[in-house]
Design a protein around this nucleic acid. Structure first.
Lengths: 218, 218
DNA sequence: AAATAAGTGAAGGATGCCCTTCGCTTGGAG
DNA sequence: CTCCAAGCGAAGGGCATCCTTCACTTATTT
């Protein structure tokens, strides 16, 4: 009764809600986070007003859809912690994350342009913490280059997003080549030319703000 | 008289044209290729109709602006051919190209989303030919990993575009870190894990078509 | 200096998307 | 069975951007 938030939904409304969520999942996956909401309503065979009643704005809908993708992110990161070989843990995690981006355009945009919505903050922080532990372990094991940081992983995700944006249709496997190259670069002892570290290493906070403003500017 | 295409321009019209071009150069650099044409007209202190009279559509304007960026691309690639050390030639060229992307958002979008406009086809082909020669030389000198191809350079540009899209404001030097990493990966003999080559290597034609359609879809 | 070809700007459809309103319909409790 | 709160769809207001039209102005030519 008092329990969950929306369990006061009438049965038909609940059905419609599921139709919307399902349609949005597909639409965001295939068309990115900017697809017209009206298209989502059409795919759900539901009136646009119904969509707006259930989700006050686009952000709310995105949040609902991205929630379980984010959960997968958390799970993948924590699973990587349990992989024995530190390098395999790291490399496998990178591949998993980038694979998620490749499989879902909404993930690509949502994870790199900004991490929208407060509801996703907690799982996101949890995932990043696990990721950091995986990175630290690989570094200390001497498998991962010593100057690698969590910021670099963000960089990799952004780079992957760029490749996917241009090749998703024509060469949907091209991203594998990119992260193959990058993983080569990440192995410890491989570098005799040192890639410059990010200069004064902008804080995660700065990054986040910049991402938000960047998104608004468009 | 019959000679050049637009040398029939009246003097005031020529002046206005220059104002438009100058404004567009700045606007595309700072805001990307999607800036409203009305904003360009405003910056040029010219009526929107004047802009449309001179450039029938956005593509025509983009073509005019990107022409000299493309010329710089050609020049950089051919200059790299004259650099003695094959690796320095290659690495310097990659840095130059990515630096152009970093300096100009219009270049970032124009060079990776698609290469718009027939007028740019010729210089583009010329640049890519020179790039290929630089790559071949570095490979044969044993400096560049044996499996590196011209496609990989495209991949690098796309990856760089992705990083720039998310960091241009907050961390405008972040891209250097990415290409530092990637260049590490490109040195010959560095790879004991082989990055998978692009599978059946989609033809340049396929790539191009996909880029065009991708652009249309947005 | 007048004629005329060319250029200019203000205004105005057309489209596509966001989001809201309002009268009708319907599920489900009494 | 009846009732009504909740849900629904059709229609529409608002805004941004693209691109065009047309009456007026200005540069050049004779």
């Amino acid at each position: 009764m008092d329990a969950c938030k929306r369990r006061g939904l009438r049965k038909d409304a609940e059905i419609n809600r599921e139709r919307i969520v399902a349609a949005a999942r597909v639409a965001f996956r295939e068309g990115g986070l900017d697809v017209p909401l009206e298209e989502i309503a059409r795919r759900a065979e539901v009136n646009i007003a119904t969509l707006y009643r259930r989700f006050p704005d686009r952000e709310a809908l995105i949040e609902a859809i991205l929630a379980d993708r984010m959960a997968e992110f958390v799970e993948a990161a924590e699973a990587a912690e349990r992989v024995d070989d530190p390098w395999e843990a790291f490399a496998g995690l990178v591949e998993h994350i980038c694979g998620m981006q490749a499989a879902d355009q909404g993930v690509t945009e949502g994870f790199t342009s900004c991490f929208p919505g407060e509801a996703l903050e907690a799982p996101r922080a949890r995932a990043l913490a696990a990721v950091d532990r995986v990175i630290e372990r690989a570094r200390h094991a001497g498998a991962l280059r010593a100057d690698f940081t969590g910021q670099d992983l963000m960089l990799i995700m952004m780079a992957n997003a760029g490749v996917l944006g241009s090749t998703r249709c024509a060469a949907p496997e091209a991203w594998r080549r990119l992260i193959g190259l990058i993983l080569d670069a990440c192995r410890a002892g491989r570098a005799d030319r040192i890639a410059p570290p990010l200069p004064p290493a902008p804080s995660a906070e700065d990054m986040r703000n910049a991402m938000l403003t960047a998104r608004l500017h468009r």
